[in-house]
């Protein structure tokens, strides 16, 4: 653009009908987000391509990374101890950057102690390791019920806890994010790390499920 006069024409070639990912009328906050996003792009603070690249990067993180870490922890007690003791440094040595936003904590489920993770205030989640959280994790029902009746909620997830297991709910209220190492399923002694990783589900790393059995 050589000059900027007040006879301003829109140069972008789309109409202004907002693209919504849900049916129903657009909310005030969606409208606000769209307006700010378009302004920032028009002002040149970032481009639409930058935005799409960031969305791609965010959505490309998925539970496979977490599953690999759990499989390695099951196979290597020294690695597991380091992962629990200092996740940032241990992952850093593997070239995995957990980012500056929050601190990752790693906890282990055993026959005696079962951890389950929630964020009662919003939907804090170890995105750096597990990607985007499942829809139910953000639901009011899960967030309000799992702190009050964790055993009831876990039963609804189909999880049968060992009789002697104590339940510890981890509420990510602030700057810590939690990754659960589920119990290693029986009958998996001969499996290598990649076979073990296949057994580690997203939900088992939140604590709402066990890892899969080898025959599943």
């Amino acid at each position: 653009m050589s000059t900027h006069d007040h006879d301003h024409h829109h140069h972008h070639d789309h109409d202004h009908a907002p693209i919504s990912d849900q049916d129903g009328p657009i909310s005030r906050f969606e409208l606000l987000e769209t307006a700010i996003r378009e302004l920032l792009i028009e002002k040149g603070l970032f481009t639409a391509a930058d935005l799409h690249a960031q969305i791609d990067a965010t959505e490309s993180r998925n539970p496979a990374l977490g599953a690999d870490l759990v499989a390695k922890a099951w196979s290597d007690p020294g690695f597991k101890a380091n992962l629990i003791d200092d996740p940032r440094a241990t992952l850093g040595e593997m070239g995995i950057d957990v980012g500056a936003i929050a601190e990752l904590q790693v906890v282990e489920n055993t026959d005696d102690l079962h951890h389950v993770v929630v964020c009662t205030l919003c939907s804090c989640y170890p995105r750096m390791i597990l990607g985007v959280p499942p829809a139910w994790y953000k639901s009011t029902a899960y967030r309000s019920r799992v702190v009050k009746d964790p055993r009831g909620v876990l039963q609804e997830f189909g999880l049968e806890l060992p009789d002697r297991a104590k339940v510890r709910v981890l509420d990510s209220t602030a700057d810590l994010r939690f990754l659960v190492i589920p119990r290693r399923p029986p009958g998996t002694d001969g499996l290598d790390e990649s076979a073990l990783a296949e057994l580690v589900t997203r939900d088992s790393m939140i604590g709402t499920a066990e890892a899969l059995g080898p025959q599943s």
Binding site: V147, P150, R151, K166, V167, R168, V169, L170, T173
Partner: peptide, 19 residues
Amino acid sequence: QRDLWPGYGGPADDEIEAD
């Protein structure tokens, strides 16, 4: 948990941690 919720149905040593 039993300190937080009157009538909590689980074992006495169930707990919750928050930051």
